[in-house]
């Protein structure tokens, strides 16, 4: 095998087919960027899910003077006795991992901390507007309904919120985004494969004289096909590297913004980012090589 000879043939081939090569690289880069973006969101969502599964709580708001639900109006504000009963009942339930009582003062303070940089929110809520509540952590967050049913309607309890339900809506949005990105990327990848097939066919036609002579003097099929395959692989690699740029940009611009926005303390690790990039590049190289190979089988016979 003469590496230098093969490399110079590849270089000639890539240059001769420059416009098509650029088209292939662009298509591959775009499709892989979408693919990688989809994977990235997917990984981010699963990490956030895991994070919130550990922290998600059921929040039971107690009746206050200003509560206007029917139970509260019938029974009046929650009494200390009711609070004690509810707390001990919750603690005795198998589904419940822990119970934390948050007093009205604490709730107000938490609120102010959370929106420290949002004066409008702080101004809108006065002390006493926020009811005291129980933050209940469940063993299995999906069993929310069973616990909620048990507590719903008890005197002293206003409303029950499941943090997960709120989060699920958001996660569902991200899931949809993932599916959309992956679907579009697969369509794009298919288009890229067809484009590569066409490029290789054109390249094989352009070089029919060379390949004809190669065949005549007894070059092996592998040797005849190698420059085409490597051209495909190189185009895939370059496309993959460009896509990596987009993926890194998406990670630092888009995901970081989502995290800041939702105050999630979940950062995608460098490891996952590298694995997404690795998978994308490998996919690009494989796709291009396989598409070249399949085309060559049809257009470069012995």
């Amino acid at each position: 095998m003469r590496a230098q000879f093969v490399l110079s043939e590849i270089w000639i081939g890539l240059r001769r087919n420059l416009t098509m090569t650029v088209a292939v690289i662009t298509t591959v880069a775009i499709s892989l960027a979408l693919f990688g973006g989809g994977l990235l969101i997917n990984q981010q969502v699963s990490q956030m899910r895991q994070y919130w599964d550990e922290r998600v709580t059921l929040t039971i708001y107690m009746c206050t003077e200003i509560s206007n639900s029917t139970t509260c109006e019938e029974n009046g504000p929650a009494t200390d006795k009711q609070r004690q009963d509810i707390q001990s009942d919750l603690e005795s339930m198998d589904q419940v991992k822990s119970v934390e009582y948050v007093s009205a003062e604490q709730a107000f303070k938490d609120f102010q901390d959370r929106f420290a940089n949002n004066q409008a929110m702080i101004d809108a809520v006065r002390k006493g507007d926020l009811p005291d509540n129980f933050r209940v952590q469940l063993v299995d967050p999906t069993k929310y309904q069973a616990v909620a049913n048990e507590m719903q309607g008890r005197p002293g309890i206003d409303t029950i919120y499941d943090d997960q339900q709120v989060l699920e809506q958001f996660f569902g949005l991200l899931d949809g985004l993932t599916t959309a990105a992956l679907t579009v990327s697969f369509v794009q990848l298919a288009a890229a494969a067809l484009l590569i097939g066409n490029t290789v066919r054109l390249a094989a036609y352009n070089r029919r004289k060379e390949t004809g002579i190669m065949r005549l003097v007894g070059a092996s099929n592998f040797y005849i096909q190698l420059p085409f395959l490597l051209e495909g692989a190189i185009a895939g690699l370059i496309g993959g590297i460009i896509a990596s740029g987009f993926i890194v940009a998406a990670r630092f611009l888009l995901l970081t913004r989502i995290q800041q926005w939702f105050q999630f303390d979940v950062t995608l690790s460098t490891g996952s980012l590298l694995s997404v990039i690795g998978v994308s590049i490998i996919l690009g190289v494989l796709l291009c090589t396989v598409a070249s190979f399949l085309t060559l089988r049809r257009y470069l016979r012995v």
Binding site: R2, F5, E210, I213, L216, A219, S220, Y223
Partner: peptide, 24 residues
């Protein structure tokens, strides 16, 4: 003839050996 127009005489002849992997 079937020569490669972008290669000189030496390269055209050498091509037959290069593509069967003969050493330089």
């Amino acid at each position: 003839f079937r020569l490669l127009p972008n290669k000189n005489v030496f390269e055209n002849v050498a091509f037959a050996l290069e593509v069967i992997g003969k050493p330089r």
